[in-house]
Amino acid sequence: MLTSAESQALILSLEVSLAGVLGALPIALLFGILLARWRSATRAVAEGFLSLPLVLPPVVVGYLLLITFGSREPLGGWLLAHLGLRLAFTWKGAALACGLITFPFQLRAIRLSLEGIDGRLLEAAETLGARAFDRFLNVTLPLALPGIISGAITAFSAALGEFGAIITFVSNIPGETQTLPLAIYSAIQQPGGEVEAAKLSGLSILLALAGIMFAQSADRRARALLHT
């Protein structure tokens, strides 16, 4: 059914998206908490800034990543020298690009779910002896979980389709950075690659549909958890 190159692109896409989204999750959670508590006018500015990856052209995001994490750039060079972490032209860089581009999806979902928590429940927890961190861990977080999960799944589905930032930052290397969209692009570039492009596009459509259904069922399950 799938050639080994095709399944390689599929698995790489899943790996890169998953790594990117999971890596961005704790950071989105941290900023989500800060934004949900932030009650001043500057909050909108901060949230706008944090949402930039979503509205900037992906090529620009890829370019910015390249001039930050390129091996000859100060930060990229430092990471390589001290942690042995090479981002440019590796799948890790592709994951970073995916995580960054879809970060605003996660951030928004987390902020909205945290703001949706009934503060009166936290008061109740407080009269029952719970400290602030305890209240967050045992009341706020479990109640916000459905929103956080569906935000992560949305981000994952969007990450699967990332093209511009990946090709700019980490290029199009089969087996290393060539995810599904990049493989489709390469197929179209080749004479006689139309069949391959159509096959991979069909696969992408199936993947997107599966992602949506998974997100919906996860959301349903998480909500059902509250009511049974």
């Binding site: 009934d118 429940l121 927890a125 009269t127 002896g129 400290r131 009341v139 479990p142």
Partner: peptide, 17 residues
């Protein structure tokens, strides 16, 4: 949390999860 005052709220405020 340190007062040892129990509070039964009008809307119960049970933890739904």
């Amino acid at each position: 949390r340190k007062r040892r005052v129990g509070y039964v709220f009008q809307d119960a405020r049970l933890f739904p999860h």
